[in-house]
């Protein structure tokens, strides 16, 4: 269940003017092109859009794990008033996992197959914090329990566990040092619906029990509908809309969001199958004006010439000249 009131926390992460370009032999790909957003303390934020919209690049930038071609061209990302992007290499190592940790898509395959899962967790704790091994073990066991896995399974090797259990363990591993922010990139995409439901339940419990902030990145809007306070929609490297979950689903104001929601199949009702004609733009040579205008039903001359700014009206941010007509 998503609640209508947003927890009134302080901004934990404040990204502004972020630009990340990939310099490849064919040219410069503007993967993330001037985006701003905040994640408040205790808030669950969803970041969605289609492949190539820049959502994963955003996550990789925040953890500074961009591939060599990816260059941060501008902007800042303030985390607790410290700019992540200007951290030195040494500082980053201490920063990752302790301040921000990440759960990747298919993370269950990143457990080391030759070590028992409990030892992997203990080691993760000991790398960052000085404490007796016994104490680290106790912390690890508690975490394993908190993600719904019996203590007795902690000594198992990864291959003895199912995909869902491994994914839950990865979430436990991400929480091991109690970071204030966890970034989850497609955390349930490779899983069956039953396991997905278990993971989403886990997120909801964490939200009730802790002050964790979570940035969930997924193309699956239905996952976000069930877990997030607010949702950010990206298209071709830019944020096109941001709104509290309920408003985004019930009163989408950007033509892209509207189409995306109506294209999404639902088991609840007979829905006409809808889709967005055409393909996402080439980010080396994006169209003039609004990136979405070649696929948009509401296009006017102005959209072809000018890129619409992201305008905030009472917490509902939309980048469209015709937002009030949609």
């Amino acid at each position: 269940m998503s609640s209508s009131q947003i927890p009134g926390g302080q901004p934990l992460l404040k990204v502004s003017g972020l630009k990340v370009y990939y310099h490849i032999s064919q040219g410069v790909v503007k993967a993330v092109d001037d985006i701003d957003f905040t994640v408040n303390c205790g808030e669950f934020v969803g970041l969605s859009g289609e492949s190539g919209c820049g959502k994963t690049t955003t996550a990789m930038t925040l953890l500074k794990i961009l591939p060599r071609e990816g260059v941060i061209e501008g902007g800042q990302a303030l985390f607790n008033n410290r700019d992540i992007l200007s951290l030195k290499k040494k500082e980053i190592n201490a920063f990752r996992w302790q301040e921000i940790s990440m759960v990747f898509q298919g993370a269950m395959n990143s457990l080391n197959p030759v070590h028992r899962v409990i030892n992997q967790m203990i080691n993760a704790i000991l790398i960052h914090e000085k404490m007796p091994r016994e104490k680290a073990k106790e912390i690890a066991l508690e975490l394993i329990e908190s993600v719904g896995i019996e203590r007795s399974r902690a000594t198992a090797y990864p291959h003895e566990l199912s995909g869902g259990m491994k994914q839950r363990l990865m979430i436990a591993l991400a929480l091991v040092l109690h970071p204030p922010l966890v970034i989850a990139d497609e955390p349930t995409t490779a899983l069956d619906v039953m396991i997905q439901a278990q993971i989403l339940d886990l997120f909801k419990q964490l939200r009730q029990r802790t002050s964790l902030s979570l940035l969930i990145i997924t193309h699956d809007l239905s996952v976000l509908a069930e877990t997030c306070d607010k949702i950010i929609i990206m298209y071709a490297g830019k944020i096109v809309e941001e709104a509290p979950t309920e408003i985004l689903f019930n009163e989408p104001a950007h033509p892209y969001t509207k189409k995306l929601i109506s294209s999404f199949p639902s088991i609840l009702a007979d829905k006409e199958i809808d889709f967005i004609p055409g393909n996402p733009p080439d980010l080396i040579d994006p169209p003039a004006g609004c990136n979405f205008h070649p696929r948009c039903d509401y296009v006017i001359d102005r959209c072809r010439a000018e890129s619409p700014p992201l305008v905030d009206e009472g917490g509902h941010r939309v980048a469209c000249f015709r937002r009030n007509e949609i």
Binding site: A197, D220, S222, A225, F249, I267
Partner: peptide, 24 residues
């Protein structure tokens, strides 16, 4: 019943009875 009940829906404010199976 269980399978249908856990499929997330792209809508908010929908109350559905869930039948979450345990185990694998």
């Amino acid at each position: 019943k269980a399978l249908v009940s856990v499929v997330p829906v792209p809508e908010t404010g929908v109350q559905r009875e869930r039948l979450l199976l345990t185990g694998e």
